[in-house]
Amino acid sequence: MSIKEEKWFRFGKGLSQKRVRGLTVASFILPLLIWSAISYLPLWQPEMEVVETGDTFYFEKGDRVDRETFRLENEKLTADGDVPMVGKRVNPVYFPAPHQVAKALYSAFVTEPRREGDPWFHESVAHSVRVVFWGFIISSIVGVPLGIMCGVFSFFSKLIEPFVEFFRYFPAPVFGALAVAILGINDAPKVAIIFIGTFFQQVLVIANTTRTVDFALVEAAQTLGAKPGRLLFKVVIPAVLPKLYMDMRILLGWAWTYLIVAEVVGTSTGISWFINQQAKYRMFENVYAAILVLGFIGLGTDMILGAIGRELFAWEDGKRSFFSRLMNKNKPTPAEA
């Protein structure tokens, strides 16, 4: 650290490790603070929860009442000489406080399903993960090689991409009914929806990424005697791999977004089923817990994949491969003999 104060805002420049970590934490703490403020401070809280019923006939303990209604009722009770209700200001039931959701994050896992034979929460989560996993894997097994071939050979690009370009404008959910008719009501149509949602984007994205490979590398390999097979497997694919890996992480995120649609196809299953159930019982803290679990799985997977990627592609010199190569010229050459 220099004595000079480091500036927070500099065009196109990074920040110190310490600040990066601080900002990352803040990016989660800030929304949590806002959520807490709205939950615990009388900022919004448009309703009253009845704590003591007093002499009212209309409301029971625990009821949530519009503040205006509550005031009118209490005015009437006081005017009639009855005991007024006692209440506390609360947010609507669909806006639970952080501690309630935190509790639900634990209790959702240990609460027995309401009906015999219904899945536990963790089973619902596993079910969702399974559907996304298979949809994405099957899509990738076909889509990645196809995308690479389109990126390398104009033949495949011109033969395949126009139709794929057209097909990807069909929203995947419109195939729900068809998928059920063809594949039955089990997981197959759900996997199919994830597949349709991912595959067509995947082919185009991977083809475009493959086209960004520096063709000079291919030419260099040719002058070293490499023939087409080796050019593909030892030059194009290694060259495209870091970006392809990045694409796959983004595509996996897209696959997740199709999950909720896929899960209501046929019989409702997985986390969507759980969310709908809990919303029906008005257990909104469980709804939020389930949504958070989805987020944690998504973010967790991406972070793990990111860490693996940094290891695999260390030769890129981190994210600065492009800049580092530019800057190599200015760097003092290490012991140039």
């Binding site: 520096d214 000079a216 030419e219 260099a220 290694p238 592609f313």
Partner: peptide, 26 residues
């Protein structure tokens, strides 16, 4: 194209995913 006519380009064309030695071994 073939290995009997080696070429060095103006652009840097080493394979960035291979070490220096592996590049020469290509």
């Amino acid at each position: 194209p073939g290995a009997d006519r080696g070429m060095v380009f103006q652009k840097y064309t080493l394979f960035p995913w291979l070490t220096v030695k592996k590049n020469v071994m290509f």
